[in-house]
Structures are given as C-alpha cells and as structure tokens.
Computed example of a mutant assay.
Amino acid sequence: MTTTSSDLYPVSRLAAVREATAAAGLDALLLTPGPDLRYVSGYDALPLERLTCLVVPTAGEPFMMVPRLELPAAEHSPASRLGVEFVAWDETDDPYAHVAHRLGSLTKVGLADRMWALQSLRFRAAMPDVEQVLAGSVLGPLRARKSPAEVAALRAAGAAIDAVHAQVPQFLKAGRTERVVGRDIAEAILAAGHVTVDFVIVGSGPNGASPHHELSDRVIQPGDAVVVDIGGTMPSGYCSDSTRVYCVGEPSPEFVKYYDVLKEAQEAACAHVRPGVTCESVDAAARDVITAAGYGEYFIHRTGHGIGLETHEDPYIVSGNTTPMEPGFAFSVEPGIYLPGRHGARIEDIMVCGETAGERLNHSTRDLVIV
C-alpha cells in the first residue's frame, strides 16, 4: 500500500480532534511543534523558542500562530490543506497574549505533551485563570488507534529496520568496539530509508544487562552475547524499533538456556494479542513464562510501548493498564532477561492488533544469531 501525506494526515482529523476536545471538557488545544501538532496537521514544524502553535478551540475557528519567518514553511506544509488561518507574528509581538485575547474567556485548555516549559509558562502568564492539562488526554486515545495508512507506514518502517538487522552480522566482529559497530549500524539505518537515527544500542557482554546501554568503547570479545536495539524515523514521520540478539562465537549453555525461555515468552505475548484482551494481560503472557522459569526478578521493565509518530506513546503494555486492545493499536512486544555483570537478552517486535489477532511488523529471525 502506497501512502500519501493526505492518507497519513487527513483533513478530517481536525474535526475529530475538536469533537474529542469538547467531549473531554476542554475549551481548546494548544499544539506546539512535536508529534501532537504533526498528528493533527501534518506540519513537522521546527521546535524553536519562537512560538508556533495550532490553536484548536471547541467554539470558534482554529488558527495557527506562526513566526513570520516560518510562514512560508507553514504555508507549504500539509497544514495548508486544513483551511485554517495562519496568523503571522513579528519579533516584537506577544503571540501568547494574542492567543489569550483571541480565545477570550476559558476554563481549561490542553497543552501539547511535548510543549517546552518556556511556552507553557508563558501561556500560564497570559491566561492565569485557565487550568492547563495535557493534550494527551484527548489525543492519546486517538493516536493509539492507527488508521490503515498509519499501519502501512509502520509496516514500511518495520521492513526498513529488518533490512538493517540483516546487515548487523557483518558489523559484529571480535576486536571491534561497540561504538564503531554502532556507527556502521547508524549509517545502515539511514541507507535503509530512515531520515533520522533515533537510537542505536549495542550492548556486548555484561553491557547487555543494561537495557538502555549507551554505546561505549568496550571491545567485543569472543563468546560475547550482543543486544542490538535500533530504530529511526521514516520520511512519513512514523518510527521503527526492533531488538535482536547476536553472539560472537559460541554462546555459553547458561545463556542459551534463558534465551530459549525469552523466545518462548515473546512468542506467548505475541500470540495473546487480539481485540478485547487488556494491555496488562499481554504483559502477563510474557512475564508468566519468564517467572515460571525462575528468571522473573531479571525481567525489569514493561513488556512494551505504543509506537507511531513517537517511539514511545500509548498504549503501554504494562501491569495496571487495563485498557482493552482495539484494532489499530500498534506497540512493541519486548520482554528481556538481564543478569547484572554477566549478560542479557531482549527480543522485540512491533505488533499491530488486527480485527481478530495480532500482526508482527518485524520479520527478521528471532533465533539467536551466531556470527
């Protein structure tokens, strides 16, 4: 399926957002550069200290405050299809006061979840009697349910990162450092079609026991297990994220034993996905396998996170999240086992909940790859 900007960011989305804003009891949403603004308008605006803000009131017409020097970019972005007024402001203007004046008397507004404190505090000063809440309370549930076009974009992202994992064995050699391997992987992520490299984790040997290990100058040793967790953003704005485990030479029997448990746990969680089951039950499907095998204390994070315009967004696959799965939910399934000071492992696929079952968007082998 070929997706266009109109498919990913339909004009009809603005009306749906206004309706959801009113239903949530908010008077307006104030959306500054970031994933919330891009979701509603398609505009991937530069995050600057100068205010760019899409104002979505429940009463009255939406408008976008734009620094005059950014007006051409806004007018040539997908936001131009929305038919909203672009209000250009000059360097000596106060755009916050303009928004407050134009909105008039309000009770509660939603601020973009990624709005800078600089901007939220300026809005508070301009509207001191207005309650501020996160726009995510409105946009989170909408963004969680991916459209067919969004699923297609995530599927393309998954294929791109799979192509990178296919190249990882040629980069992993004893004697090379994690940092050098990471640089090769970053170049491959861009070559596979991503526009940005969002993260590259190469956790070798004992560093594999740190789930968010940063690249280091540790030299990869023969027999090392290596956790490779990588992701980037595609031109569509949608993200990839996938983790695989490699071993430089023959792994230890201890590592193979718990890797097999991990693979079983990840499979159980993926097989559990279908409409109506809760997010926490997907977490439990993986966690129960790992706990039964005696490794429960070494699974130290949630099983997954939503993915879309952000690598981490709703829904979160974690105990306590009783949200039922719905068709269109997209999220990672990534159980891990981490033995401090020794080694660790994680297997991660992006999944989409379909009408009757889950669909994996990553298809590279989940077997332990020996290089």
Score class of each variant (00 low, 15 high):
residue 38 R to L: 03
residue 217 D to V: 10
residue 70 E to W: 12
residue 180 V to P: 07
residue 227 V to Q: 02
residue 218 R to S: 14
residue 121 L to W: 14
residue 100 A to I: 03
residue 80 S to P: 11
residue 169 P to L: 06
residue 168 V to Q: 06
residue 24 A to G: 07
residue 5 S to Q: 14
residue 245 V to M: 04
residue 48 L to S: 14
residue 7 D to C: 10
residue 307 I to V: 14
residue 335 P to R: 06
residue 258 Y to E: 02
residue 245 V to I: 04
residue 26 L to Y: 05
residue 342 R to P: 10
residue 106 L to W: 05
residue 231 G to T: 00
residue 367 D to L: 04
residue 218 R to I: 13
residue 113 D to L: 12
residue 151 V to C: 00
residue 189 I to K: 02
residue 369 V to S: 09
residue 189 I to N: 07
residue 155 R to D: 14
residue 171 F to L: 01
residue 335 P to E: 14
residue 199 F to C: 02
residue 328 G to V: 06
residue 106 L to V: 05
residue 371 V to R: 09
residue 244 R to C: 09
residue 12 S to T: 13
residue 197 V to N: 00
residue 135 A to Q: 08
residue 167 Q to G: 02
residue 255 F to R: 11
residue 87 V to P: 05
residue 97 A to F: 10
residue 228 V to H: 00
residue 148 P to K: 01
residue 61 E to T: 04
residue 301 H to N: 08
residue 123 F to H: 05
residue 166 A to F: 13
residue 75 E to Y: 09
residue 370 I to N: 04
residue 101 H to R: 12
residue 314 D to F: 12
residue 92 T to P: 01
residue 347 I to M: 01
residue 279 C to D: 09
residue 370 I to V: 01
residue 21 T to G: 07
residue 314 D to M: 15
residue 131 E to C: 12
residue 13 R to I: 04
residue 329 F to M: 14
residue 58 T to K: 02
residue 339 L to V: 09
residue 78 P to T: 11
residue 367 D to R: 12
residue 78 P to Q: 13
residue 28 A to V: 09
residue 119 Q to V: 10
residue 349 D to G: 14
residue 131 E to T: 15
residue 173 K to M: 01
residue 82 L to W: 06
residue 329 F to G: 02
residue 298 Y to F: 10
residue 333 V to G: 09
residue 328 G to Y: 02
residue 21 T to A: 00
residue 129 D to M: 09
residue 347 I to C: 08
residue 159 A to S: 02
residue 201 I to Q: 09
residue 115 M to Q: 02
residue 193 G to N: 10
residue 76 H to T: 15
residue 256 V to H: 05
